[in-house]
Amino acid sequence: MNTSSPRAAARQFDAGQFRHALSQFATGVTVITTRLADGSFRGLTASSFNSVSLDPPLVLWSLGEAANSMPVFSGNSHYVINVLAADQAELAERFSRRGDDPFANVEYELSRTGQPILKGVSAWFECHNRSRYPEGDHVIFVGEVENCAASPQTALIFHGGRFGSTPIPVK
């Protein structure tokens, strides 16, 4: 069943208005991590994370098509989505910068498939890289969750261009 229209109506806003409107939606903050064939790690900060399905267990996140890490995440079979805790804003900033190794002096453990799971996160999802869908200037990654865990820590959120925390801790 195709429910899409043939074409969208003409836009009545500019890119700045769109970005500002998007900033009003509070999102969780994640760091997506993976291990390369040579044993090195890569990671990036992403707030575009969402559940897709409970059966099978599917989640999604997106990455800009022009991102330097696109070949890494497109080509690897597995990755971990680390949901950052309220006290981990520095990790979000660290994994969003280019240059220095973001894993330097960061505690992590390895998942069953050898992917880095950051210590102290609110939750993590070890995913098989199931499918990818190009849309606009991003690629949507759908991961099938093979393992996951959660802690009762308050999650880090991003809203209005700033980091904060959720008002209600998870039990």
Rank of each mutant, 00 (worst) to 15 (best):
T3L: 15
R19I: 11
H20Y: 13
R98E: 09
S53E: 09
G164Y: 00
N105T: 11
R112M: 11
A10R: 10
A85H: 03
S96M: 04
H159G: 08
S131N: 10
G39M: 04
E135F: 07
R98W: 02
F163T: 00
F49N: 10
E65K: 14
V59P: 10
N68F: 08
P56F: 10
L60M: 12
E146P: 03
S62C: 15
V59T: 03
F18R: 05
R19V: 14
V83Q: 01
D14E: 08
S48I: 04
L118W: 00
S131D: 13
F158Y: 15
Q115C: 12
P56T: 10
Y108V: 01
D100W: 00
L118T: 02
D137I: 12
S47H: 04
A67P: 06
G114W: 11
S131Y: 02
T33Y: 07
V29A: 03
G39N: 09
V72S: 09
S122T: 13
S51W: 01
D87P: 02
N147V: 05
C127M: 06
A26Q: 03
N82C: 01
F163K: 00
G164A: 13
A46V: 14
I157E: 00
G160C: 06
F103A: 01
P169V: 11
L44F: 15
T34E: 06
D137N: 12
N129G: 06
V80H: 05
Y79P: 01
R11K: 13
S122E: 03
R98M: 06
F25N: 03
L60N: 12
N105I: 01
G120W: 00
S165N: 04
I168Q: 09
L91G: 10
C148I: 02
T45G: 11
N2Y: 01
R35V: 04
N2C: 05
Q88C: 07
N147Q: 11
F163W: 02
A46P: 02
S111D: 01
R7I: 12
L58V: 10
N105E: 15
A8S: 12
R97E: 09
F18H: 02
A123G: 04
Q17F: 03
A150H: 08
A9E: 12
F125V: 06
V52R: 02
A21C: 14
R132H: 08
K171Q: 13
Q88V: 04
Y108Q: 01
N2G: 11
F18M: 08
I32C: 09
A92Y: 03
D87K: 00
L36R: 15
T154P: 03
T45W: 09
A9K: 10
Q88H: 03
L58F: 13
Y79F: 11
M1H: 09
A86D: 08
V52W: 03
P167Y: 00
F95A: 14
E144T: 05
G161A: 02
V142I: 15
D137K: 04
Q12E: 15
I157D: 07
G160L: 08
T113A: 13
E135V: 15
A104S: 12
P169D: 09
E109G: 09
N68I: 05
A150F: 01
S74M: 14
H20C: 08
I81G: 07
E90C: 04
L118H: 01
D137P: 07
P134A: 10
F49V: 14
R11Y: 06
R162W: 07
F41D: 03
